[in-house]
Design a protein around this nucleic acid. Structure first.
Ligand SMILES: Nc1ncnc2c1ncn2[C@@H]1O[C@H](COP(=O)(O)OP(=O)(O)OP(=O)(O)O)[C@@H](O)[C@H]1O
Length: 843
DNA sequence: ACCTATCTCATTTTT
DNA sequence: TGAGATAGGT
């Protein structure tokens, strides 16, 4: 009951306003008073306005989420609203969990629904499965399964033109996004090219989903909407139950989602939405800014509130954000101010190559770590996932703990999808997509022809592939094949029976054993080793799931897996976050690096000819900038590998738009790259433009424990993750540097370093590594407090990740020194001498 | 039915 | 560049 509460000082100067509130709520529990205490005057109003439709339209970091959370607590604690009468819709599962947890600390919130709209729809559809023409254990199809079934439907229609297939895929996605059935879509797009073919495939696709007792992502929404629209009992019950409905990130809801929300709110009408039109970045998924901009139209008499004070960022960062977003024409202007300090000026850095961009960021991180920041204070954000590679390389070399979010997800790997397909088939034997996927995985001698026969039989008899398997005798196959089918069917049948009793993890073990899934990757190739490891990791993850969710069913597990995203497992551990801008919406970091600031990447080349899309790109920029609390770095690479060729890139137009606020490096000179270009650093043009302090960081733990998870070698959880926010605010900047602090004295080469003149040394060396952002006036003789003199050709060294190696090349000096090291089995790698956790092996 | 050599095309963004 | 699809050989 009594949860430890943090001691609170009065943080803001609204004491007077607050006093009024205290008087009003004399009798409230200390907890709820605490809640209101943490809100400013503007923020309190929407919390207290509990009835009717309410909109909070406010800029980034103004506390919208905090207001929403507080309002729930207020409803329960003050208005005696039972938790089960509350529905809160968040954008990610992570946000939902955090919200649940936070509210749970204050009041007993069991019975409340806090989830994403997709999870909510699954819940509703399982409650009303029969009414929706499904059974409770329906499968949920993600993009891969959708693509497979579209392709299959396409072929069944006797089409084979690749171009047409693409067009069909696009239209189907579009139709489903809009919530239109094949007939409706055909009608609305009658003049569209190839619309008949599209409709034919689409209809067939939908039929297949039905046969398979499956829904795709969009269907979850569409079917739920349909149910609520047509089934009065469902609408009456759910609408009646949810007296208060709250939606976060409302700017990114699409038409169908809004309709669902409206249907649910149709009974009580207490709908509370918060959002920021400037942060609408999912237009490509059908999100409609109009939902929030014209909220009053849908709900006449809605009360609108603004929040104008930003609590998250420094003035410099906020200024930058306000500047970019003003280049957008189609928006509702908002004021956003802060009482936070000016902070550091955001920095721009342009490297010659990706590796230089990564190295700059690694050095900057190392430098800030030396000043008391933690890895978890940093995020490296990008427009596209593909950009993570150079950072992953650099960070592993340097022993910087990091984790990649987005991109290839663990559960999308082949071997894992195969495992999941087994589970899907066992959970829902109608799921013929799953059946076909794993019928010959691992290889059991059932080839394409046999599968075709099965599918034909299934089609003619209107049965599932699994049923066809049970009728193997009817197919007129050779006795050998028949036997194989029977064996397979018997195996599956056994597991279906088992699944009623066994917990999911044991079922999984049984499948791995019974299929020889692991044995299929028995050889010593890197690939097989990796796949075995992934399978093991999968088993671990299922164990973990079962531990945390006692009594969960197979259906629960599968739903959870398909609806979860990898951002859901962002946690408090000590690692640098590598992620796309999209995936960090709603989050904040002390230091943000926004990389790939090039035309064609940010903004994406696809937005070139479309002003609306360009505005969405700019909003993306706004979102990215406003994630930063204290420090912001915008980086780019002047050239990039594209399709196997190194191509020059162009500075992002967004950087140019910000030229009044930022100091941009001089535009590239017309001269050939000589000297240093080979190592991917920046060349020697105008170091002073970036700042003038020599690099002085680099003391970080060399022994980061390597995480064995299947996430592509991210290593995190290093040993000193729990030093609490000792982060310097602006005082640490121009002030006296950090000399001699005791950070990390037990690591590496100890704390402060003596001074001499690295500055000179660095400048003497070609391509001096000088840049703004880290370091102090006090210069280092040995970059990062590390003695680099031992690094000579022929010296043997060892690296925690790469093992033993020999130095075969040394270039540059000081912080700029690059070593070519031959690691056995790994080839030659280039490492930063000052950053990489290398140990010299004494001969 | 399976394996492997050759060709192709592609990078947004995600619940 | 490199992953994934396809075709042709065993
Ligand atoms: N009244 C307040 N006093 C102190 N800090 C606050 C206050 N309100 C919000 N904050 C802090 O400001 C930051 C941003 O809050 P929050 O995430 O709720 O904003 P938001 O408007 O939802 O942001 P975004 O638009 O990026 O989603 C958080 O760190 C939060 O703790």
């Amino acid at each position: 009951m009594n949860c430890p509460r943090k001691k609170r000082k009065t943080l803001n100067p609204l004491a007077k306003a607050r006093a009024v509130c205290y008087n009003i709520f004399m009798n409230q529990t200390t907890e709820i008073r605490d809640i209101l205490d943490r809100l400013n005057e503007e923020q309190i109003k929407p919390v207290l306005t509990t009835e009717g439709p309410v909109l909070v339209l406010a800029g980034a970091g103004s506390g919208k989420t905090r207001v929403l959370t507080s309002r729930i607590a207020y409803l329960i604690a003050e208005k005696d609203v039972p938790p089960e009468a509350i529905l809160a819709i968040t954008f990610t599962n992570k946000a939902a969990n955090e919200m649940k947890e936070r509210i749970g600390q204050i009041v007993d919130a069991r019975g409340m629904w806090v989830c994403t709209i997709h999870s909510m729809c699954v819940r509703i559809l399982r409650m009303y499965a029969a009414e929706a023409g499904l059974t409770q254990n329906f499968s949920i199809y993600s993009e891969t399964e959708r693509a497979n079934i579209i392709k299959k439907s396409f072929q069944e229609c006797d089409f084979d033109d690749e171009k047409l297939l693409k067009n069909v895929k696009w239209h189907i996605a579009n139709a489903k996004m809009l919530g239109l059935s094949p007939a409706e879509y055909a009608e609305e797009n009658a003049k569209e090219r190839e619309i008949d073919d599209v409709t034919k495939v689409y209809a067939r696709y939908q039929a297949h989903l039905r046969e398979n007792n499956a829904l795709d992502f969009d269907d979850l929404l569409n079917e739920a909407r349909q149910l609520l629209k047509r089934n009065e009992e469902a609408r009456g019950y759910l609408g009646g139950r949810f007296r208060y409905i709250l939606v976060d990130e409302f700017q990114d809801t699409n038409a169908v989602q809004f309709e669902i929300v409206k249907l649910l709110a149709s009974v009580h009408g207490n709908l509370f939405v918060v959002g920021d039109d400037d942060q609408s970045i999912y237009g490509w998924r059908g999100a409609k800014i109009e939902n929030i901009l014209h909220f009053e139209k849908a709900f006449p008499g809605a009360k609108t509130f603004k929040l104008e004070r930003n609590y998250r960022s420094t003035k410099s960062i906020l200024k930058l954000a306000n500047t970019v977003i003003h280049f957008n024409g189609n928006r509702k202007d908002k004021t956003l101010w802060t009482e936070n300090g000016d902070g550091e000026k955001p920095q721009v850095f342009e490297a010659e190559e990706e590796s230089g961009e990564a190295r700059y960021i690694a050095h900057t991180i190392a430098g800030l770590i030396a000043r008391g920041y933690k890895y978890s204070d940093f995020a490296v954000l990008m427009r596209i996932n593909a950009l993570t590679r150079s950072f992953e390389q650099e960070f592993t070399s340097d022993g910087i703990s990091y984790k990649v979010f987005g991109g290839f997800k663990f559960f999308e790997r082949k071997e894992i999808k195969d495992m999941l397909a087994y589970l899907r088939l066992i959970n829902n034997p109608f799921d013929s997509e799953a059946a076909v996927r794993i019928i010959n995985v691992p290889k059991r001698g059932i080839g394409a022809k046999t599968v075709e026969a099965l599918e034909n039989y299934a089609y003619e008899t209107e049965l599932s592939v699994y049923d066809a398997l049970l009728d193997a005798d009817e197919l007129g196959l050779s006795s050998g094949t028949k036997q194989k089918l029977k064996d397979f069917a018997a195996q599956i049948k056994g597991w279906i029976v088992d699944s009623q009793e066994l917990p999911v993890n044991e079922l999984v073990r049984s499948i791995v054993e019974g299929t020889g899934m692991r044995a299929a990757y028995a050889d010593d190739s890197d690939e097989s080793i990796n796949k075995r490891a992934n399978i093991d990791e999968f088993i671990n993850s299922v164990d973990e799931y079962c531990r945390l969710n006692q009594g969960a069913t197979l259906t629960d597990y599968l739903n959870q897996v398909t609806l979860s995203s990898d951002t859901d497992d962002m946690d408090e551990s000590n690692y640098v976050t590598l992620a796309t801008v999209h995936s960090v919406k709603g989050l904040e970091f002390k230091c943000v690096f926004l990389c790939g600031m090039e035309d064609g990447i940010m903004p994406t080349s696809r937005a070139d000819n479309d002003e609306d899309e360009l505005e969405e790109e700019r909003r993306l920029m706004y979102v990215a900038i406003t994630r930063a609390r204290e420090r912001l770095y915008l980086t780019r690479s002047k050239s990039r590998y594209l399709y196997g060729k190194r191509e020059p890139t162009m500075r992002s137009r967004f950087l140019k738009e910000l030229s009044s606020e930022l100091e941009l490096p001089k535009e590239a000179r017309l001269r050939p790259n000589f000297g240093y270009s080979e190592d991917g650093y920046f060349s020697d043009d105008d170091p002073e433009a970036y700042g003038n302090s020599a690099f002085g960081g680099g003391r970080y733990a060399a022994k980061n424990s390597s995480y064995g998870g299947g996430y592509g070698g991210a290593s995190y959880g290093s040993s000193y993750g729990d030093r609490q926010n000792s982060a310097p605010k602006r005082s640490a900047w121009n002030g006296g540097g950090y000399g001699g602090s005791s950070y990390g004295s037990s690591y590496g080469n100890g704390g402060g370093s003596s001074s001499s003149s690295a500055r000179t040394a660095a400048q003497k060396s070609t391509g001096a590594f000088t840049y703004g952002g880290v370091g102090s006036g006090a210069a280092k003789p040995k970059a990062g407090g590390k003695d680099l003199s031992a690094f000579k050709i022929g010296v043997k060294v060892s690296h925690p990740k790469f093992g033993a190696g020999t130095i075969v090349g040394v270039r540059g000096a000081g912080a700029n020194m690059i070593l070519d090291i031959a690691f056995s089995g790994l080839g030659i790698k280039q490492l930063s001498a000052s950053l990489a956790p290398l140990t010299v092996q004494n001969a």
